[in-house]
Nucleic acid binder design. Structure first.
Lengths: 105, 105
DNA sequence: TTGATGTGTCGGAAGTTTCCGACGTATCAA
DNA sequence: TTGATACGTCGGAAACTTCCGACACATCAA
């Protein structure tokens, strides 16, 4: 059993696409799977990873399961990124000076 | 040979920590490796992944190599996240209604 | 030069991820 | 009830990741 790891959940392009799709509204598994060049078990397993990362929530409707997006764990990634966006214009400018100097050759 | 994949590069906690460390300034490989419970080859290989994702730049200084942070590819992640932060207060509010309703049991 | 240091990379081991077919279970329609 | 549908999950294959020791090479100090 693995821990809920948001970064790891986002490392797969299929899972990122699933999350993007779910922005438009909840979707059943077969419906989702038909949009990928993948079998249903694979999509089901990607959904399991997203579920463990708490990025999706499942809602049973009859014999289908609608998956809903829960974007809240993405704030962990956003917070991590902030450590770099607030990383100081001065150092960024200095870096770009160096890169400019290199490209001048 | 693998493509430069920023999301995949961030999926490993050691690599994320390396990037955080490099905010404070460039570091040589042995210097970096001493901060982890890891051998030098492992750190060197993590740096290779970060290099392919263009998140770091190497600067040879004598027999050492100083690695510099280049945070610019992180904007790809930031842009991707924006698709969710601008994902509409109305849907988020609706989601939280549902979650509240569930927790009321 | 010789010897020590800093680094990249290869070969291989161990673990993890990704995918599929097959199966079991629940639900629905008739 | 019977048959079809929707889904989760298991077993296993293939590919990838992560790590290490060993080695090669360049640089420095003497």
């Amino acid at each position: 059993m693995s821990e809920p790891d948001v970064f790891a959940a986002l490392s797969n392009p299929v899972r990122r696409e699933i999350l993007l799709q779910l922005r438009k509204g909840p979707r059943a598994v077969n419906d989702l799977a038909s949009g990928f060049n993948l079998g249903r078990p694979a999509v089901s397993e990607h959904l399991q990873v997203l579920r463990k990362a708490k990025l999706v929530r499942e809602e049973p409707r009859g014999r289908e399961r609608y998956y809903h997006l829960d974007p809240r764990p993405l704030s962990e990634v956003d917070d991590w990124l902030k450590a770099f966006t607030h990383y100081g214009k001065q150092r960024l400018a200095a870096l770009e000076d160096v890169l400019d100097e290199e490209s001048r050759k």
